[in-house]
């Protein structure tokens, strides 16, 4: 029964990916199929060739990779530091700050569009990759801070006390004592940050002005308006966008499942 349920979950989540993959193998120029098509009649890679013609794929990929290479470690570090600091606070101040951090999750994103736009404009980084990396300075989302906080809270307080008695600084305590014990959560935070920054369409839309600063989600998004005969190109773009995210999640799966934080 459990196996059947697991299989069902796998099918539900994999089916869209499989259909997108199958759609990307349909020959460019053919009208779209009338319904779902599990495998095109004469599969090929023409959609991927056409994708390279319609979009500056290498530049889009380069920009996206640059963003995640900087933003993911940065977001993970900031979230971990913030979570660690929250966990060290006395209960009263901690409750307030955790409440505020949770409240920040409820702030509608559009409220940040204009302040951020003005800030980037004033600092002179509009139309660079900086606005796409900048959210990492705030741990990308308050959710990652709360994740780190929960993980550090599960560490027995005696360990922090012992480190303090040994004369370890906060940074050394975080690095030598805390971080090794929350590696699974840290990996999860990195995965969350990767998925966010790799697929960040909105910031790219609002703050990238020129072709040179466009990233993959924006480039693939432009394909949304291709006509039916080129629908497979859109699917090919979706595959290119999805594969790194899937690979990243597969890569972190083992450490995530192997460790239980704080124990």
């Amino acid at each position: 029964m459990r196996v059947a349920l697991r299989l069902l979950v796998v099918v539900v989540f994999l089916a869209p990916l499989a259909l997108v993959l199958a759609g990307s193998l349909r020959r460019v120029g053919l009208p779209p199929p009338a319904g779902l098509e599990l495998l095109p009649a004469s599969p090929g890679l023409t959609a991927y060739d056409r994708l390279g013609e319609l979009t500056p794929l290498s530049r889009l990929l380069r920009n996206s990779v640059l963003v995640v290479l900087v933003a993911v470690p940065l977001a993970t570090l900031v979230a971990s530091w913030a979570g660690f600091a929250l966990a060290q606070l006395p209960p009263r101040g901690r409750r307030w700050l955790v409440g505020i951090t949770t409240g920040l999750l409820l702030v509608p994103l559009p409220m940040l569009w204009i302040p951020r736009f003005v800030l980037y404009l004033q600092v002179g980084v509009l139309d660079t990759l900086v606005p796409l990396i900048a959210p990492a300075l705030a741990a990308t989302t308050p959710f990652t801070v709360l994740l780190a906080y929960r993980a550090f809270r599960r560490v027995p307080p005696e360990l922090w006390e012992a480190a303090r008695l040994e004369g370890a600084s906060a940074l050394v305590t975080w690095w030598r004592v805390g971080l090794p014990l929350v590696s699974a959560t840290t990996t999860a935070i990195a995965a969350v940050a990767f998925v966010f920054h790799w697929g960040n369409y909105l910031d790219a839309l609002l703050y990238a002005q020129s072709e040179a600063t466009r990233t993959l989600p924006l480039g693939i998004g432009e394909l949304a308006t291709v006509d039916g005969a080129e629908q497979s190109v859109l699917f090919a773009g979706a595959v290119v966008l999805a594969v790194p995210a899937v690979l990243a999640l597969l890569a972190v799966q083992r450490p995530l499942l192997a460790t239980r934080d704080g124990s």
Partner: peptide, 20 residues
Amino acid sequence: GVPDQGDHIAKLGTAFAGGN
């Protein structure tokens, strides 16, 4: 070039409000 009209308007609105 923005593919979607809604995105076009959101981008315009933000850019106008941001003064650029």
